[in-house]
Design a protein around this nucleic acid. Sequence first.
DNA 1: TCTGGGGTCCTAGGACCC
DNA 2: TCTGGGGTCCTAGGACCC
Length: 429
Amino acid sequence: MSADRLPYIAMVDCNNFYVSCERVFQPVLEGLPVVVLSNNDGCIISRSNEAKALGIPMGAPAHKLQHFFAAHGVRVFSSNYALYGDMSARVQDILSRFSPRLEAYSIDECFLDIGELSLERAHALAQEMRKTVGQWTGIPVCVGIARTKTLAKIANRVAKKTPEKNGVCVLESPAEITTTLQSIDIGDVWGIGRRSADKLRARSVRTAYDLTRRTQDWVRDMLTVCGLRTMLELRGIPCIELEQVAPPAQSVSCSRSFGQRVTSLEALEEAITSYVQRAGEKLRRKGLVAQVVQLVIQTNRFADDPQYFGKGQAALPTPSAFTPDILTAALQILRKIYRPGFLYQKAGVVLLELCPENQRQCTFSDFLHNDERKEQKRLMQAMDAANQRFGRGSLQFASAGLGAKDWHMRQQQLSKKFTTSWAELPTAK
DNA sequence: TCTGGGGTCCTAGGACCC
DNA sequence: TCTGGGGTCCTAGGACCC
């Protein structure tokens, strides 16, 4: 197969995804500057074009921009992942009609292998994708097409930034690829982060094109094999495969910043209990059991207060997805790593050494406790079902505490659960 | 009042083994 | 002058992604 007979890879990316999701259900936001905040209403993670035009930077701490928001009529939303996840699934479902060879790369991006097509057909198909996703979901998308994933990412970027392209860019001819790569800053290449970009610039590699001019050995020495793959992909040689099936998870975690600083062991126990419950839910939903529990508690690194970063881990007696098992281990670790006198700002739990529940190694003790384990499973199923039906936290463990807590995250601008809760649907008049 | 959360992979270096 | 050397496993740290 010659290089120009490689299948086309399309990268479909939703524009300003979280903001677009909010707008679908509140069309009045169209044309206005809109931003969506991270968990805990911490920093800005999605901006409408109008918000970008006002110069609001990605990742900026929201609390420093309160006055700016008010002065410019910026609409502000807490992040609503139930809504975004649901919209994401709809977009993916539509795209899968265009090609079954699809990789859901992130909540707002898909790679598709669209096979061998003429240039004209590729353009037409991309426009068809935009139109269909737009009409069926209300989410605007851009499409970039090329022979490798890294080039498709760049094509997508060009599609998004060049209005004349009408949301679609196909990178095909060598001349066009060269001109485009010369215009792409090295730091904007997929796979080149800030550290690597600084290193490369210090050695006169300033654009994507500059990188392609270096030897493979040079790139490998500078950036390891990952960077080498990126460089080869820029040259049009596919090195990063389409992952149609998500590889099995290596870890499941839940961590949060607190609404206010926390000092007491009791408050940390409550927070950890609630995070373990959430991590357990995720684990069970994937049909996995965990063998190792890791815990982190930390102070606010931006503050002048004394700093502490506590971390510990423990193996479970037997691989488990039973929340009380995980909780026992987590609370033991917490008591070990807790130091009084610090203002804690964040805590998290990570579950590691995962394996599918039905492939768990059975010990003799498992055999003895088989009935007990079945009971535990039924209990968790009942609990997860109740929490799904009546809302997260409806049914929880007593050590999570009751009532409003300092550690609960702030979510002051949350939109309604338009797609996932009947109770929130507008009533017909 | 006050700066997200959830992931993955690679590498170097030490421990250990034969 | 010459101190064995190579494989494997584990871990911490770093880098990346959205």
